[in-house]
Design a binder for these strands. Sequence first.
DNA 1: TTTTAATACCTTGTGTCGCAAAGTACTGAA
DNA 2: TTCAGTACTTTGCGACACAAGGTATTAAAA
Lengths: 124, 124
Amino acid sequence: METNTIVENSRTQMRRGVLEYSILLVLRSGDEYASSIIQKLKDVDIIVVEGTLYPLLIRLKNLGLLSYRWEESPQGPPRKYYMITDKGKQQLEELDSTWQELVRSIDSIRSGAQMQIAAAENNQ
Amino acid sequence: METNTIVENSRTQMRRGVLEYSILLVLRSGDEYASSIIQKLKDVDIIVVEGTLYPLLIRLKNLGLLSYRWEESPQGPPRKYYMITDKGKQQLEELDSTWQELVRSIDSIRSGAQMQIAAAENNQ
DNA sequence: TTTTAATACCTTGTGTCGCAAAGTACTGAA
DNA sequence: TTCAGTACTTTGCGACACAAGGTATTAAAA
């Protein structure tokens, strides 16, 4: 269990890295309020908690990537539905590229051999 | 340029998330010293600097995932070559799975539609 | 009518960690 | 014996995720 902590820790780190990206991706498919975002991410094993999400949503809103509207709930207090702005969509596209590049980067380190080629090309 | 900072920031976050994993991957292909690790990661566009790497290597060594040996340099002071331990290899395998799961998770949010299925399955 | 339970949003404090910057040390050539 | 190059290390700061606790709304139960 001491051993597991190392991997668990690194797993958490990885998830953190894609948090903003994940949220934008979820909102690209439709407007959501905080709890439903948490649920959707949980469904794909990306764990986020309230204390993380709320400040993040506010940050993204202040950056102009998101906006929100209030909407009545069938039960309980009103919900704050977040939606992605045009600016948000544009940034999301860039993050998409970034993500794909990262996947490619990891792939090439994983298969070790290619690295010498890349290194040779860059070192000239 | 204000706009770029958002993406740049998120890009950095993503890279951070895979730092430990990347280092273990590099060392799986062979022993390396700090500067050469930095170079190899730079070759695949994963930027790491000394102030980040040294503490990280020490942390991984203290966790028993890495060990090192000193080796003469053809020029300059001796180099600390890090190598991955058996424990490190075992943990790396788990990180490999973690990474693949993350890639799958992101893929499924990206294609939005699948999410309702997953949600329906989990909510019963 | 007031208590409880459920839902939802928000804030504070703490710990971790990446990174810029500055420092130490070894080597060999000028 | 100074300088330049290489390599390892440490310190201080800032950002951020997250646990924990807090506020507000609603409706049903007591």
